Simulated assay, not measured.
Amino acid sequence: MAVRQSATQRTREAVALNRLGAEMRRLWAEGLAGSATIEAVRDTGERLAGNAVVDVDLVVLVDGRAPYATTLRTPIGGTDVTPYRPGARYNVKVDPQDPANLTFAG
Rank of each mutant, 00 (worst) to 15 (best):
Tyr90Arg: 14
Thr79Leu: 10
Val62Trp: 11
Ala66Leu: 14
Gly78Met: 11
Tyr84Pro: 01
Leu61Cys: 01
Thr71Ile: 15
Gly64Gln: 07
Tyr84Ile: 12
Leu58Pro: 03
Gly64Val: 10
Arg47Phe: 02
Pro86Leu: 11
Ala52Trp: 01
Leu61Arg: 15
Ala66Met: 07
Pro67Leu: 06
Pro83Trp: 09
Val56Asp: 05
Val59Pro: 00
Val54Lys: 08
Pro83Met: 05
Thr79Val: 14
Asp63Leu: 10
Asp80Leu: 12
Asp80Tyr: 10
Ala49Glu: 12
Ala49Gly: 04
Asp55Val: 02
Val59Leu: 04
Pro83Tyr: 12
Val59Glu: 06
Leu48Cys: 04
Gly77Met: 01
Arg65Glu: 11
Asp57His: 10
Pro67Gln: 09
Arg89Trp: 05
Val53Gly: 07
Ala66Thr: 10
Tyr84Asn: 00
Val62Pro: 06
Ala66Gln: 15
Val56Asn: 03
Arg85Asp: 08
Asn51Gln: 11
Thr71Trp: 01
Asn51Lys: 06
Arg47Ser: 06
Arg73Ala: 11
Arg85Gln: 14
Pro86Gln: 11
Ala49Pro: 00
Tyr68Ala: 02
Thr79Cys: 12
Leu72Lys: 07
Gly78Lys: 11
Leu48Gln: 01
Val92Phe: 05
Ala49Cys: 05
Val59Ile: 15
Leu58Asn: 04
Val92His: 12
Asp57Lys: 13
Arg85Pro: 00
Leu72Ser: 02
Arg89Ala: 07
Gly78Phe: 13
Leu61Thr: 15
Gly64Leu: 02
Gly87Tyr: 07
Ala52His: 03
Arg89Gly: 03
Tyr84Phe: 15
Asp80Ala: 07
Gly87Glu: 04
Arg85His: 11
Asp80Ile: 10
Val81Met: 07
Ile76Gln: 06
Gly64Thr: 08
Val56Leu: 12
Pro75His: 13
Thr82Cys: 02
Leu72His: 07
Val54Asn: 03
Gly77Glu: 13
Ala69Pro: 08
Asp80Gln: 07
